[in-house]
């Protein structure tokens, strides 16, 4: 088997020498995509969130984005509309009706979920996204060409693009405070939250904690930790008192988002055998049909 493949490659290589030369380089080219056992995560308990939006403020300050004074965040009229993260706000809090009459409405913070198998990392044409050891999925300004395929790929609709900029528009999304965590600090939103809605810790411990909370408080939560299995698992995990679909969480299966396209892609390009075989096949047809025609004419 091995022998025959090598033989074949040798033959095919003569025809497709140019292409074949690129093969080994390609195998090494994938961006950093690690899944460390000790990767960090955040558990968001939406039943605790009061919608004070201090996380939005802290996020802007931590990322040097322009922000209104902190008092302006008391304005709850913003909840009239469902908001999404955008280049000027990497995290936003939305409000949803509480199914229990008379109880305060449900607030949900949304931002990048930092998938274990990120679609953006797989999709990015130049590998500008990478999954880091600490769980963060970050974007590399130096590589990006602004194609926005990451936005198409993301199952959580997270990456945003600076449409208003003619030069150096950025893809903006929560970076899990990669700079801060590198300095030993915790993410800005986790730090400022007055209700400690968020817990920052090792993902596997947070999963445990989440299930413990569900067990200890039957009735408070629905029995599901969103992000434990969705699209292969995410670093950010959520607890809620109401079905997640009603809180604008997308309904996603347990398969990683990039799974299907990556395996198909790798099948087509397995050691460049299929393209080179096709090349050889077409070459053969060309040669035979040409010879047939010549002999016919003679």
């Amino acid at each position: 088997m091995k022998q025959s493949r090598r033989d074949f490659l040798k033959t095919a290589g003569i025809l497709g020498a140019g292409l074949a030369g690129l093969a080994p380089k390609k195998a090494l080219a994938a961006p950093k995509n690690v899944l460390s056992d000790d990767r960090m995560g955040v558990l968001v308990d939406t039943t605790l969130c009061i919608g004070c939006r201090r996380c939005e403020y802290a996020c802007k300050v931590a990322h040097d984005l322009p922000s209104d004074p902190i008092e302006s965040y008391n304005d709850r009229s913003v909840f009239a509309q469902k908001r999404r993260p955008d280049p000027s706000a990497l995290t936003v809090v939305n409000e949803f009706e509480n199914p229990v009459a008379g109880r305060a409405s449900i607030n949900v913070k949304t931002q990048c979920r930092h998938c274990d198998y990120p679609a953006c990392v797989s999709a990015c044409i130049v590998g500008a996204f990478s999954k880091q050891e600490n769980g963060a999925v970050i974007w590399d300004e130096g590589k990006c060409i602004g194609c926005r395929y990451c936005m198409v790929a993301c199952p959580f609709q997270v990456p945003t693009f600076e449409y208003e900029k003619a030069l150096q528009p950025e893809i903006r999304k929560c970076d899990f405070c990669f700079k801060r965590t590198g300095e030993g600090k915790i993410p800005a939103c986790v730090e400022i939250c007055p209700m400690e809605v968020m817990k920052y810790g090792k993902r596997h411990e947070l999963v445990e904690l989440a299930h413990q909370r569900i067990k200890d408080n039957p009735g408070r939560y629905i029995d599901r930790v969103y992000g434990e299995y969705e699209v292969g698992g995410t670093s950010w995990l959520y607890l809620a008192s109401k079905e997640f679909e009603k809180l604008d969480f997308p309904e996603l299966g347990p398969d990683p988002a990039p799974g299907a396209s990556e395996s198909l892609q790798h099948a087509i390009f397995a050691y460049f055998v299929p393209p080179i075989s096709l090349f050889a096949l077409l070459g053969g047809i060309m040669w035979i049909s040409k010879r047939g025609k010549e002999s016919e004419e003679e």
Partner: peptide, 28 residues
């Protein structure tokens, strides 16, 4: 927010007060 066993004092106080108070004041 890194102590997984229990909230810190800030979280504990705010949870106790705001859980009810925001229900009737509709404000934070």
């Amino acid at each position: 927010g890194t102590d997984l066993s229990k909230p810190g004092l800030k979280g504990a106080y705010h949870r106790q007060c705001l859980s009810c108070h925001r229900e009737w004041s509709h404000s934070n």
